[in-house]
Design a protein around this nucleic acid. Structure first.
Lengths: 208, 208
DNA sequence: GCGTTAGGATACAGTTGTGTATCGAGTGCG
DNA sequence: CGCACTCGATACACAACTGTATCCTAACGC
């Protein structure tokens, strides 16, 4: 993503600044609530710059979504890299992966808010919503694959469908993040790094 | 809630119709996206009726939130009523409560969307947001109390903080509901009624 | 049935926001 | 070093929405 030929340095810098501003403003005011005007003034531009770079607000939102999603995905990929947990005691793997992920992507209120907005678009079938659903499904698939690989490394298999296991994993992460943000406290690392992996391992059995 | 003296029958019927319409329209278009005009025409009124009943859109949203929340709360209260699970085999209680709750409040896309919108308000500190946070905290407390009572009935105590347990419970429910809605399939009852309770029981030990 | 009042419709003014067309300045290239 | 052109600013037309003020009619008491 970048240096498309024919795009000057100046131009892409402006785009980035607009996207950065959009991240802040959209998180604070919501996708519908934020005006193009607000985004521009937060970026230090006028609407002229905006419409020179994006055809509409929807296009900006789409671009922002893609950027944020790519960031998230690279965080996941880095966290689930096998060398993250190579040579660890059995049962430590999941906790270590979670640990690494939390390190790479500490709680980020703005991201959470944006993500929630995108999610709503997906559920509503708004513009770009289907794309969100598809990408999010990808996250689920990716996590499933990792869980399965880790378990097989440990010589275990799940006694419940992996899909259920992933739902518990993602749901708990999401709920804990939300609670922490609402109560304005740090994440309960113990829940995510110890309790949750232990619980999930309780739903496995030795592979035959 | 109702028959406030001085309020005629006609008036409160109009209010209800407006609230019903708001539920649909707000779910479909989002709180910011929906115009008062849309809500009114969906209810079969003009804006004149609206402003005769509510001072502003925010006030309507607040009223709707309160109505929805009261419904949810009564669903919870009814589901956690001790006679729901009286005389059941140990370990069945949580599953039975969940069962009953799903029966009383089957998946409802509109409610889910509304709830997500309210949640965003809470996180952003928008109008009425703090109230949402407070009521939601109440749900957490209520669930905690029930979990503790059920466990004590069974002669068990948690080996992890109850708060963590509740986070897992609510998070999983939420995630499963979301997935089901996105994929347009029924809820995975097995996950919520069997797997989840079993998993949570795995995080308990006999009380001394 | 008749008058009174409450509740809803209609019409209007003002605000906010989008998108487009045009203009001017700074940038990068030869 | 100057020219061409890209990019961002300014100004404008237009659409959507909110909230208010006024009018009209249907409900209810007597």
């Amino acid at each position: 993503m970048s240096e498309t030929p024919g795009t000057t340095r100046r131009r892409s810098a402006t785009r980035e600044r607009l996207l950065d501003a959009a991240r802040d403003v959209l998180a604070r005011e919501g996708i519908h609530g934020a005006s193009v005007e607000h985004i521009c003034e937060h970026a230090g531009f006028t609407r002229g710059a905006f419409y020179s770079n994006f055809a509409s607000k929807d296009e900006l939102v789409q671009a922002l979504f893609e950027r944020e999603f790519a960031d998230l995905m690279s965080g996941i990929e880095e966290a689930v890299d096998p060398q993250t947990y190579a040579g660890l005691a059995p049962g430590e793997s999941l906790g270590r992966i979670m640990d690494r992920f939390l390190e790479l992507r500490p709680p980020d209120r703005d991201f959470f808010l944006l993500h929630a907005e995108f999610q709503l678009r997906g559920l509503r079938g708004d513009i770009g919503g289907e794309e969100f659903n598809a990408l999010w499904r990808m996250v689920g698939v990716r996590i499933s694959a990792v869980v399965e690989r880790v378990l097989s490394d440990l010589g275990l298999r799940t006694s419940i469908p992996v899909r259920q296991l992933v739902t518990i994993l993602l749901g708990t992460y999401d709920a804990e993040l939300r609670e922490a943000l609402v109560e304005d406290r740090p994440l309960d690392a113990d829940l995510l790094r110890v309790t949750l992996p232990a619980l999930l391992l309780a739903a496995t059995e030795p592979a035959d």
